[in-house]
Design a protein around this nucleic acid. Structure first.
Lengths: 223, 223
DNA sequence: GCATGTGAATGGATTCACAGCT
DNA sequence: AGCTGTGAATCCATTCACATGC
């Protein structure tokens, strides 16, 4: 499911797991910090300690994209940061739209990480006439859902975020896909039927609470 | 990191991975739906199709906790639902508190899944005098952060949610842990230094966007 | 000497395939 | 006949350990 199953890794390094890219994001954030405090180099070992990871894993993760370290020294912080930025494709800005201007949509609209280096949030969309015309605290406008097609075409939206109820999520996914959005982040707790070449990532917030509950239950059961 | 490393699985079935429990949550939601439409039984195969999973995996997941199916028939929907509810420890209500009444905290406060069967959100806490005394759209009050200790003790709070900035997250984690909260969900993008026996789950929303960006970049690079 | 990059070894999770029950 | 429960096989991720280069 990670990549289109009938596209066999053509030029060989297509096969980078989401676990790896997730960690790359984490390293990147760390490198940005290190750069801000003027640290010049960092070793895989030092990085590993910060994240309770194994240093070999970090080296493997980084080695997927070429050799960046210097033996005996480590990695150059700004060089590596730049490289990861390019690798993750956030060396240029991608436009984002959020569908659903309810509580969650509004909160995400003002969430720093979603409107920051690499991403630009163009608008919220909603079908509810009461919401249209308002804006989020940080000034993202709420536009009519019918504008979706226009917006995507004219503003070059590349990423859609689904923040509507479970009922409407499939519909929104299909509409986003039809207008040409190829990457979608879904917060509705439903299984979406996928279209080819339209990447979906789903985030299920409730699962996290239930996982904590499971932990607590087991603690209790030990007494 | 998943479980405390120096607690070796004492009575043997401590070893259920988060991947498994995550799927249990998903099955549970599905079963709740099936019960609402009065479906009596379901087979692992049918469940598997709904989630694009392998049916053996579902059987394995369920078999961790005993034998619930009937060979030749499948699983009884309400029986299995009840069972999963108990397994996940949400057959009783757990009190929850959110620290940080910014955009994210407020949105989470009104998020259905967080104040629904199995969980009860007691309050939001914040240090900002302007926010104290307000309430979320659905009526969750914002109380002074100093109330944390009292609240946890008097109301029996079991789960804390960190929705503050990265700077303060460690502090909040420590305070929550000190007052006796044993399960914490963190939305701040920092590595938290853990205390023994205090479970932490972190959700990093930005990683998801970056992962989509990585996907898009690779699509581009193929042309 | 020190830290990277990487094949080999390990450890987990998923899938296969079938025995066993209804 | 149909579907569960599960050992065996496979697949993937992580870790070890060392050869390589600064």
């Amino acid at each position: 499911m990670a990549t289109n199953p009938n596209t066999r890794p053509t030029n060989d390094r297509d096969v980078i797991s989401e676990l790896t890219t997730g960690r790359l994001s984490v390293y990147l954030r760390c490198l940005t910090y290190l750069e801000s405090v003027q640290q010049q180099t960092i070793s895989s070992h030092e990085l590993a300690q910060r994240f309770h990871l194994n240093s070999a894993q970090i080296r493997k993760d980084l080695a997927c994209f070429g050799e960046f370290g210097t033996r005996g020294v480590g990695y150059n912080v700004s060089e590596l940061r730049q490289h990861l930025t390019r690798t993750l494709g956030i060396d240029r800005v991608r436009n984002v739209v959020i569908v659903g201007a309810g509580n969650l949509g509004m909160a995400l609209a003002d969430y720093r990480g979603f409107n920051d280096s690499g991403f630009h949030l163009v608008a919220l969309l909603d079908v509810d006439a009461d919401k249209i015309g308002r804006e989020s605290r940080s000034g993202i406008p709420v536009l009519p859902y019918e504008e979706l097609g226009n917006l995507v075409r004219k503003r070059g939206v590349e990423i859609g975020i689904i923040a509507v109820s479970a009922d409407s999520a499939q519909q929104v996914y299909d509409n986003l896909a039809d207008t040409g959005v190829q990457a979608i982040l879904n917060f509705a707790p439903v299984q979406i039927r996928l279209k080819p070449d339209v990447k979906l990532k789903s985030v299920d917030l409730r699962i996290n609470l239930e996982s904590l509950s499971f932990y607590l239950k087991n603690v209790e059961d030990e007494s």
